[in-house]
Simulated scan of single mutants.
Amino acid sequence: MVERLNTAAVEGRIDLDELDARLDLALNAKTYADLARLTADLPPDVPVNQEPLVLKGGMHGVTRSGRWEVPGHIIIHGGMGAAKLDFTQVECRLPEIRIEAEGQMGGITIIIPDGWAADTSRMDGGLGGFKDKTTSQRLPRTPLIRLSGTGGAGGVVIRHRNAWERRKQRRLDG
């Protein structure tokens, strides 16, 4: 519990005064229910041994969009038909999502919501290139995307929704 609260403070999810208060309560807790209340507003821990989600574009392409459960680790291959990861309609409380991207021939497009940020320092452009069109402004309690890999021949793009996607979503929302 102490480690989890310290991690939350390092990630900026709670400030130092809140950390001190919660640590005091944790160290004096009498039941598991007392402990559970201290982390109810924090994202769940991600199991270390959780299997990654593997997506392969293959010949016809692959898209993951809409509402879906986001794991802490994703491996995505563009294949011949391209691959697309769309996080704009998911509810994700993970502090971090690791994505290993291999653009291959078809390329990969990754779309993240406004307020999410990406660390793309481990990406290699390959022949098709790599484009990071995201902003660095990260809202509290949103995931950080840690993107690594290569653009391959098709390239990799990570971005926020474009104007057309925003208009489409406003129409759907009514």
Rank of each mutant, 00 (worst) to 15 (best):
V2N: 14
E3Q: 07
E3G: 03
E3D: 05
N6G: 06
N6V: 07
T7V: 04
V10I: 05
V10N: 06
G12L: 03
G12P: 03
I14K: 02
D15W: 00
L16M: 11
L19I: 01
D20P: 02
L23M: 03
D24F: 09
D24L: 11
L25Q: 15
L25R: 15
A26Y: 10
L27N: 15
N28K: 10
K30E: 14
Y32Q: 10
A33T: 12
A33G: 09
A33P: 03
D34W: 13
D34F: 11
D34H: 13
A36F: 08
R37V: 15
A40R: 12
A40N: 08
L42Y: 13
L42F: 14
P44A: 12
D45F: 08
V46W: 14
V46C: 12
N49K: 13
Q50P: 03
E51F: 12
P52W: 09
V54D: 08
K56E: 13
G57F: 04
V62I: 11
T63G: 06
T63N: 11
T63F: 05
T63Q: 12
R64P: 08
S65Y: 07
S65T: 09
G66D: 02
G72E: 04
G72S: 07
H73P: 00
I74Y: 07
G79K: 12
G79I: 09
M80S: 14
G81K: 14
G81R: 12
A82D: 13
A82P: 10
A83D: 02
A83N: 04
K84P: 01
K84L: 14
L85Y: 00
L85G: 01
D86P: 02
T88Q: 04
Q89V: 07
V90T: 15
V90R: 08
R93M: 10
L94Q: 06
L94H: 10
P95M: 08
P95R: 14
P95Y: 05
I97L: 07
R98L: 05
I99Q: 00
E100I: 00
Q104R: 11
M105A: 10
M105N: 11
G107D: 13
T109C: 10
I110H: 00
I111Y: 00
P113G: 03
G115W: 13
A117H: 07
A118W: 01
M123D: 04
M123H: 05
D124R: 15
F130G: 00
K131E: 08
D132S: 05
K133P: 00
T134K: 01
S136D: 14
R138T: 04
L139D: 06
L139K: 08
P140R: 05
R141W: 08
R141H: 15
R141K: 13
R146Y: 11
R146G: 02
T150E: 15
G151W: 07
G152C: 09
V157L: 09
R159M: 03
H160T: 01
R161K: 08
R161V: 02
E165T: 11
R166C: 07
K168L: 14
R170D: 14
R171T: 10
L172V: 05
L172F: 09
L172T: 05
D173R: 15
G174D: 10
